[in-house]
């Protein structure tokens, strides 16, 4: 019984590896690295310009650090947006999904494998951008290291949720519409939610509105860049644990929905 379970686990890991490899090979084959290189080149140009004009004071260094980290967050999400919204529609269009599903692979494993690989590629690109961002302006104002660790963990969680959402919506919406919805959610969502929440306070069913809004993923909660460069201390353990639970619950729910929709879909 145990031996069978062990071999099942091994097979599961191997299948995930195959899907992951497929995603990475696809990234290389489709020359998606172009986008990564273009975005990295932007950083390099920025570094060159900053090298020329110089960083006059720690305040400017801090400002550039904020910008470098914000851009890393922004760019990593853009790459994920392009990547996650394309995976399943492309596999269906090019019929590459059939050999995969012909193997003893559940559809849920297919979705999970895609999600893992897409998230991993996003995290890798995030760290590349963060490295360039650090080259742009190494911090000079002694910000909290613990908050930096919290920030990075939440960045990763944000990417994981984002890729899950991208895969899920790609099953429901055309690619371009999916990209627009995702872009709006990740880049403007936080501001829109803040505005709605404040306005809801004066409205009649304000509390109910605020409760309902919480069901829409708010990616700005995972972006602590400004808090970090503002020189504020780390989040309390309760706050941090709350953010982690929020991220995990949201990701699990979105992935579960993606699996269910995909299982019901005729191929």
């Amino acid at each position: 019984m145990n031996a069978q379970a062990g071999s099942n686990d091994l097979r599961w890991v191997r299948l995930h590896f195959i899907i992951g490899k497929g995603v990475f090979l696809e990234i290389l084959r489709r020359k998606d690295l172009y986008v990564l290189i273009i975005l990295s080149l932007l950083y390099v140009l920025g570094i060159l310009v900053i090298h020329l004009v110089g960083i006059e004071n720690p305040e400017t260094a801090n400002f550039l650090q904020n910008l470098g980290m914000s851009l890393a967050w922004f760019f990593a999400h853009i790459l994920m947006l392009l990547n996650s919204s394309r995976q399943i529609p492309d596999d269906l269009e090019n019929h590459t999904i059939y050999p995969l599903l012909a193997k003893p692979l559940k559809r849920s494993h297919y979705i999970l494998g895609k999600w893992e690989a897409v998230s991993l590629s996003g995290v890798l690109s995030l760290f590349i951008f963060l490295f360039f961002g650090w080259l742009l302006a190494p911090g000079q104002m002694g910000n909290s290291s613990l908050l930096l660790v919290q920030t990075l963990i939440l960045y990763i969680l944000s990417l994981a949720l984002f890729s899950a959402l991208g895969l899920f919506l790609s099953l429901l919406l055309p690619r371009s519409v999916n990209a627009i919805v995702l872009g709006l959610l990740v880049f403007l969502g936080g501001n829109i939610f803040d505005i709605v929440k404040i306005r809801a306070q004066n409205a009649r069913c304000g509390a109910l509105w605020n409760w309902i809004i919480c069901y829409i993923p708010d990616f700005s909660l995972f972006n602590l860049t400004t808090r970090y460069t503002d020189g504020i201390g780390p989040l309390s353990s309760m706050q941090f644990a709350g953010l982690l639970s929020y991220g995990f619950i949201m990701t699990a729910v979105v992935l579960y929905l993606a699996v269910k929709v995909f299982e019901r879909r005729r191929l």
């Binding site: 309902i212 909660l221 706050q239 953010l243 929020y246 619950i249 949201m250």
Partner: peptide, 24 residues
Amino acid sequence: LFLLFLASPAVTMRLNPKNYEGGR
């Protein structure tokens, strides 16, 4: 999972990482 999701706003509404005084 469904129940967790339904109850999640109780936690989410208390999350306020951007809520701090001062800052550069």
